[in-house]
């Protein structure tokens, strides 16, 4: 494992911890898209079915369990927690995420490494992860006034994607048979979705001002 991959995993973990902290500390999930969180829960469950069949390392296994556990906990909080669920911005979180699920599943049926149950689900999870942030970005843009922890959450998620791209470049240059084209192309698409957010993030950082997304 190279330093970029590790940095990517850590920023991914931090993003999830920031989100859990926000929900726990403020008892509020305002500004957070339940649609995006549900998509991530589907992504993790679909991808990490290999927990039952393949063992890579203790690190991988623990991280997979943490990701599945945290994503399910977040969805549970937003849907069922007595206090937290009342703070959910249902009216602005209207992205029709089922279309994303359907589209990604159809794509995975046709574009995959191997036509097996697990490989198709793996490709599906890669495609779905690439677009899962969309409802969150739409919600950020619509609600205008975004709290700091939500901004940090999206920032760390974006940083995770950026580090993974560096990781793939590094692996491509150093490993003779590294060719993970499905993951790399989907990863590039996913990172591109953050470009706009990052642009405004850095402007607000430079001006030492609160992040404002244009309507």
């Amino acid at each position: 494992m190279n330093i970029f991959r590790f940095a990517g995993d850590m920023t991914h973990l931090i993003s999830i911890l920031v989100l859990l902290l926000k929900i726990y500390a403020t008892k509020s999930c305002s500004g957070i898209s339940l649609k995006t969180q549900e998509l991530y829960a589907i992504v993790f469950v679909a991808r990490y079915l290999d927990l039952f069949t393949d063992f890579i390392s203790v690190y991988n296994t623990v991280m997979k369990l943490v990701f599945i556990g945290c994503s399910l906990a977040i969805v549970w909080c937003m849907r069922l927690h007595r206090v937290v669920r009342r703070t959910y911005n249902k009216d602005v979180d209207t992205f029709r995420h089922y279309f994303l699920v359907l589209g990604c599943f159809l794509l995975a049926l046709f574009v995959h490494e191997k036509f097996t149950f697990q490989e198709v689900l793996w490709a599906f999870s890669i495609y779905l992860e690439a677009v899962a942030i969309l409802p969150q970005l739409v919600l950020l843009q619509r609600s205008g006034n975004v709290d700091n922890l939500t901004v940090q959450y999206v920032f760390f998620l974006g940083a995770y994607r950026a580090f993974y791209i560096l990781n793939w470049i590094y692996r491509y240059l150093t490993e003779p048979h590294f060719g993970r084209w499905i993951a790399s192309v989907a990863g590039l698409v996913q990172t591109a979705l953050y470009a706009d957010f990052f642009y405004y993030y850095f402007i607000s950082w430079k001006n030492n001002a609160k992040l404002q997304l244009p309507a």
Partner: peptide
């Protein structure tokens, strides 16, 4: 046909 590598990333 080459065997699919195990997915070693998260």
């Amino acid at each position: 046909e080459p065997e699919t590598e195990a997915h070693d990333e998260l």
